[in-house]
Amino acid sequence: MSTTVENEKATSGGSSVMGKASGVLVRVGKAVGGVVGVLYQAGRDTIDTVIRNIIPFMAFVSVIVGIVNYTGLGNVLANFVAPLASSLIGLLAICVFCAIPVLSPVLGPGAVIAQVVGVLLGTRIGAGDIPPQYALPALFAINPQVGCDFIPVGLALGEAEPETVEAGVPAVLFSRLITGPIAVVIAYFASFGLYSSN
């Protein structure tokens, strides 16, 4: 508001000093306006994402967690999953299972399986059934199928030829069978010293 008043004064005065001063003010005003605009738009995008993507998934997760915990299903699952998720061999077994080329595209969509299993394991870690340092390898063990449902679309986004897609889909699926377990082993060794003091 004050900028406008200054500008009007400058134009009516007509002196070069006033002209320069108003030029500076206009530039400052524009710069500040630009920054505020970017931040405001960023905030708008954020709220949009939170409402559209994050809160709906939280609602979905809460319903599942509520049912799992309240019915005692969680304890049953814990007896099944906790021993698997508390050893390197068990985690590798989960990982290889999820990475089987026929299963991985089925398990992939929206990462829903990985998210639900993640929540279940998280609940078990919180309950103390699984040692906390296993969180890191578990993050990789439950997720070798990431993006396996999306390969043709992802390649199309990269403007790949049909021949590339034909070779690329099996290439990625087979690669996961090798790199999935490697990732778990790396994460297992990287988890040494994680929360161990506790």
Binding site: I54, F57, G126
Partner: peptide
């Protein structure tokens, strides 16, 4: 990737429940 947060937050929630910090896990991940 806000649509798939729970791959990480699901497991991270367990760490929070135990009262441990998430920074170490996030950086190592």
């Amino acid at each position: 990737n806000p649509g798939e947060l729970f791959v990480y937050y699901g497991i991270a929630a367990g760490i929070t429940t135990l009262g441990l910090g998430l920074g170490d896990l996030a950086v190592r991940f």
